[in-house]
Design a protein around this nucleic acid. Structure first.
Length: 849
RNA sequence: GGACCCUUAGCUCAGUUGGCUAGAGCGCGUCAUUGACGUUGACGAGGUCGGAGGUUCGAGUCCUCCAGGGUCCACCA
């Protein structure tokens, strides 16, 4: 016995992982049909969270399974520079040393963050290894690697040449704290209570007035018009006249625009093109120049001196106070409206006018939508596909510009003499370049991170460069969290199709969020975050992996249950002890041989494990991870440990013991890679790696023998049921039988049911084991039998109840006529069986009374 | 304002195309007890599948409505 009594994962996991890496076991075999998964690159700015553990585990289960199935598997790992996300983390680091971004040049910042990320990235990669991911580390891609930038620039150029990229002054969602613009999707809307203020704008002669309604009175300072609906009788006569903008005393026109909703507020809309997307459009239609009154740092500019430099909220109060003093307020009402916030810092997003780079997205979106419609990509859960198609329909142009130094520079240069003249050039290391005698200045903005990660599948597989790896494009499956379906999955589909004329992956599997134990979303601020590495340290990597897939279905947000991780750990220990037992039973120097089933249990366990392996095939093909895991768990714990191992104690069949152990390890390996490989390595008849061994194939067995073992199981279960209630003195009693199946398996039954002995008799004596329908009786005293009477009565009542339902069903003509014949036949068979059981139970009761 | 999801045993959750006394893990109860494993074994108790209708021979599963919980999307000032 060279294995300790209990399995200690920490003692083996790092060694086993190192061994796989040394053996290059994760590398694609180059043989078989390619199967590829690209890892959603975790942010290289911190630690993995429990959601990563789930996603990567699912991917690794698939990778290991298909590797064993003989596919040419690439599971390509990555790390994301996570532009804005990392930037936020780094700014916090800077703040710790009382520094800010303004203390450094862009180049200094970039290299500082680079160093910061390199260090964090190393931690993250160690954590990936601790989870046991069988990723092809040689193909690891960081989102700032040269090949990424090259490909991203290539795509940008293509978009540019196809006139799908434009630069323009548009309203962008802007975080004044982080001082960068966002894509629409990055804005987090919350319903909040606010006020709708009514404000009077006096006519030029100050006799009349128009009342407008606004939730943001401070933007009044940037108003350039009042808009009313052309058909609105209240204002019809005023259209074309001018009015006085309060506080600023600027004359502005009253214009007519169909956009205005007559029923909202007062039906008159103040127009602030610089700070509202709709107003911007109105302004464009009416040739009104926008006036920016909120600066990029969130303070007021271009306003009367008493408001200049105030932050938005203070300005709002002052503006309201000034209006009050001027007697221009006409009441207010409470309303609930959606307010956009920065998803990182919660700062209220200001719509600001800024020159940004945009992708004209609809041509790309519609192509992606069509690919989904045509079934080129399937989804699990399927319902998400339709949701995504709707999303494509409503997508608006994508703002690619980010005003942060950490990211891929936008490869564009501006003519110093002609601001409208932009050229594409990749010499982003130069701040100015000269082309044909003209000087161009570099764009300072960087790309939205999702623009690069949106090209991940064809970047990581070198599809454009067409290296060896290109055979892995499109990817077989994309597995990721539902939370980034819009941000990431949608972009990969659009950019993938655009750049490669192919869908980037054939299947999308979306996992839900891992919630805390109480079902609440985890967040650092709530302090309810579960760290996967703590779980690995306490229970082992396999335990975490088993626990996190258990009872989890696609797309559902589900609570994390430590109890399932504990169950996973116990399962590993069970496997471990199965191995200890079998290794102990096999002679020194055992050499593998094909399984030679002799006993009923041998045939039965072959059937069970073969069935389990093929069930797992089906479940994994359907991405039913939890059910596949359950199949493994039960095949090994219930069937192998509780029945086969116990049965094997009454026989000695080394070929079967070894085969059962090998097969158990194989089917469990995708789910619990470490413990299975650890055991495999301890088996002296193996000198290969479990990870690269082949998935079990069918083995011949005798179905009749397997069925007979099942009958014996029923007998044993009934014997146990009866004896469990017996007093200690009678518990290990005799079993009398007149039954050749029992006689032939005397020792087995004796052991499994813990009987004193099994003896042949001519005449019935004791209590008949009626349920299992064999000629077998337990030796029980008259007194005990009497006590057992109530059990028999309960069983009898239950059986009669069931017979009633069966009879009712069969006497229903519609059922007999319409239900499948097979079902009707089954009902008939059941009825016969149950009727016979009733007779036997009644007989026993008669004897007792 | 729109869309989607959830409600099944004490807890966390499975339950594919409707098919026949509803499953798992943990927890609970009784018993076992030291050579594979107490991270164990045997046996057991827990559910009118949120509520009300409907379709069907048959509904946890499909439809409608209601109640409660959640998520996402949305430029109404």
């Amino acid at each position: 016995m060279n294995l300790a009594k209990t399995y200690d994962p920490n003692q083996y996991e790092p060694t086993i992982y190192a061994m796989w890496e040394t053996a290059n076991a994760f590398a694609p075999s180059g043989k078989g049909e390619p199967y590829s998964i690209v890892m959603p690159p975790p942010n290289a700015n911190g630690n993995l969270h429990i959601g990563h553990a789930l996603t990567f585990n699912l991917q690794d289960i698939l990778s290991r399974y298909y590797r064993m199935k003989g596919r040419d598997v690439a599971y390509i790992p990555g790390a994301d520079h996570a532009g804005f996300e990392t930037w936020v983390v780094y700014e916090k680091e800077l703040a710790k040393s009382s520094k800010s971004r303004f203390d450094f040049t862009r180049e200094q910042l970039y290299s500082q963050v680079w160093n910061f990320v390199q260090q964090k990235r190393g931690d993250m990669e160690l954590q990936l290894r601790a989870l046991g991911v069988s990723a092809t580390w040689d193909d690891m891609v960081f989102t700032l690697d040269e090949k990424v930038i090259d490909t991203v620039y290539g795509t940008f150029k293509k978009l540019w040449d196809d006139k799908l990229i434009y630069r323009g002054e548009r309203i962008v969602s802007y975080c004044t704290l982080h001082q960068t613009g966002f894509a629409d999707i990055e804005v987090e809307y919350k319903n909040e209570k606010g006020q709708l203020w009514k404000i009077a704008y006096p006519t030029l002669d100050k006799i009349g007035e128009i009342i407008i309604a606004t939730t943001r009175p401070e933007t009044l300072l940037g108003d350039v018009a009042i808009a009313v609906h052309p058909d609105d009788p209240r204002y019809k006569d005023l259209i074309g006249s001018r009015i006085l903008l309060p506080l600023v005393e600027r004359e502005i026109p009253i214009i007519a625009d169909e956009y205005v909703d007559q029923s909202f507020g007062t039906g008159a809309l103040k127009v602030t093109p610089a700070h509202d997307p709709n107003d911007f459009e109105i302004g464009q239609r009416h040739n009104l120049a926008p006036i920016q009154v909120i600066d990029f740092d969130g303070t007021m500019i271009n306003v009367p001196p008493q408001f200049a430099g105030l932050d938005v909220m203070t300005a709002r109060k002052r503006v309201l106070a000034a209006l009050e003093a001027a007697e221009l307020r006409r009441g207010e009402e409470d309303i609930e409206h959606a307010v956009g916030h920065c998803y990182k810092c919660g700062t209220i997003i200001q719509p600001l006018l800024k020159d940004q780079w945009f992708v004209n997205i609809q041509p790309l979106a519609q192509r992606a939508k069509k690919a989904l419609e045509d079934g080129e990509v399937e989804f699990t859960p399927a319902s998400r596909k339709r949701i995504l198609m709707t999303y494509f329909d409503n997508l608006r142009d994508w703002n690619l510009s980010r005003q942060i130094p950490w990211g891929i520079p936008i490869p564009a240069f501006q003519n110093v003499n002609d601001p409208e003249d932009w050229i594409f050039d990749t010499r982003v290391d130069e701040s100015t370049i000269v082309v044909d005698g003209t000087t161009y200045r570099r764009e300072e903005d960087t790309f939205d991170t999702w623009f690069s990660s949106g090209q991940w599948p064809f970047i990581t597989t070198d599809y454009i460069a067409n290296t060896d790896l290109a055979r892995f494009y499109p990817n077989s499956v994309l597995a990721t969290g539902v939370d980034i379906m819009y941000a990431w999955v949608s972009r990969m589909l659009m950019l993938g199709l655009y750049a490669t004329d192919q869908v980037p992956f054939k299947h999308v599997y979306l996992n839900g969020l891992v919630l805390d134990e109480k079902g609440i979303k985890m967040s650092k601020s709530k302090g309810n975050v579960i760290n996967p590495m703590d779980m690995v340290a306490e229970y082992g990597s396999d335990a975490l992996r088993l626990g996190i897939v258990a009872s989890r279905s696609a797309g559902q947000n589900q609570a994390f249950a430590t109890s399932k991780v504990v169950a996973g750990r116990n399962f590993c220990n069970k496997l471990w002890n199965i191995a200890r037992f079998i290794e102990d039973k096999l002679a020194e120097g055992y050499r593998p041989q094909p399984p030679q089933p002799t006993s009923l249990a041998d045939h039965w366990i072959i059937r069970e494990l073969t069935t389990a392996a093929s069930d797992i095939d089906t479940q994994l093909t359907d991405y039913r991870f939890a059910e596949a895991g359950e199949a493994v768990y039960h095949a090994i714990w219930d069937n192998v440990a509780d029945w086969f191992i116990e049965a094997s104690k009454t026989e000695n069949n080394p070929s079967m013991l070894a085969w059962v152990l090998d097969t158990s390890l194989k089917i469990a390996h995708p789910f619990a890679p470490f413990v299975t490989e650890t055991i495999w390595q301890s088996l002296e008849w193996h000198n290969d790696l479990l990870i690269t061994t082949a998935w079990p194939t069918a083995v011949q067995y005798d179905d009749i023998a397997a069925g007979e073992f099942e009958r014996l199981q029923k007998l044993v279960i009934e014997a146990r049921y009866v004896t469990a209630e017996l007093p200690g003195s009678e518990r290990y009693g005799m079993l009398y039988q007149n039954d050749s199946l029992i006689a032939d398996n005397k020792d087995l039954i004796k052991h499994l049911a813990r009987l004193k002995d099994v003896t042949e008799v001519d005449q019935p004596r004791g209590l008949r084991l009626a349920s299992s329908n064999r000629e077998a009786w337990l030796d029980i005293s008259q007194e005990t039998m009497y006590e057992h009477q109530s059990n028999l009565e309960v069983r009898l009542a239950e059986t009669r109840q069931f017979i009633n339902t069966l009879e009712a069903r069969l006497s229903n003509e519609s059922y007999v006529a319409k239900a499948p014949a097979k079902l009707v036949e089954e009902s008939r068979v059941q009825l016969t069986i149950k009727k016979a059981l009733v007779t036997r139970l009644q007989d026993e009761l008669t004897i007792l009374s």
